[in-house]
Design a protein around this nucleic acid. Structure first.
Lengths: 138, 138
DNA sequence: GAATCAAATGCAACAATGTTGCATTTAAGA
DNA sequence: TCTTAAATGCAACATTGTTGCATTTGATTC
């Protein structure tokens, strides 16, 4: 329970600390890795479908959470500054999705890894890797 | 017009060379870069919505086209072996999307670029870069 | 070229997902 | 406790994707 921390974050962004918003933040937090929308819906089934959409939009808009990842038609959300230390979202990092446990984790991009495309002005880089994670490999 | 080429490809996969399928392949081909679903729908508005879905599914299933890229809730399709030489789709390459002209192009991954994540068994790598392409930079 | 037949198509109906307007409720400050 | 704007829930709608079924069409055989 990091309720207090979340209340502070919301206050800092001039957002009311409602049950729904705290619930959403705690759900993502408890999920450990980036949380797919469908999971959010399951976990937060006490709140209206519309409210969930609007809550996500608002928190995203205010930089409290962000779209971490997208696969097929499923969007994964994460709390800003927790999994992906930055709230500008222009960070370059690698998302790893385990095909066994489905967990999505963020790994820092190796310093050695530099993308160079001549003739292109690069703004954003998204690297999504899938495979089997350390835990599931055993 | 590469109708003949497409007819052959379809025959090789035991798929009937129907107007709809040829139309779809020619549309993607004419689009030059990976074509978003919404564009396909606009271009092929003479065919039923359902048929478009089923045509895409079928051609994808048979390895004639493939999902090249996904952004927000838009899927981009490309013809196999044209933009992305392979029909196994396990190739590692970089998708570059220009924020100005919206074109999506595939670049070969630099040999120097090797992703190494200790403790992970890597199956697939998807690298999506956005920025401004050479044409739009001028 | 006509006959045949499975595959492909179009339509209708449905399901799932996302959006908008508005009346009611609630959190935060006075 | 009171006040007020923000947040919520509900209903209605819009969009997107799916399924069943009758009809059409392309490839093959004669």
């Amino acid at each position: 329970m990091e309720t207090m921390k979340f209340k502070e974050i919301l206050k800092k962004r001039n957002l009311k600390a409602t049950q729904n918003r705290l619930g959403l933040l705690e759900a993502i937090s408890a999920f450990k890795t980036a949380m797919p929308y469908s999971e959010l819906q399951k976990t937060l089934n006490y709140m209206d479908r519309v409210t969930l959409y609007r809550t996500i939009d608002k928190l995203k808009e205010q930089g409290v959470i962000h779209k971490a990842f997208q696969e097929n038609n499923e969007t994964f959300y994460a709390i800003c500054g927790e999994k992906c230390s930055s709230d500008t979202h222009h960070h370059d990092h690698i998302h790893f999705k385990c095909i066994k446990c489905k967990a999505v984790t963020c790994e820092n991009m190796d310093k050695a890894l530099k993308i160079s495309l001549p003739d292109y002005e690069i703004h954003k880089v998204a690297i999504n890797v899938s495979g089997v994670c350390g835990v599931c490999l055993v």
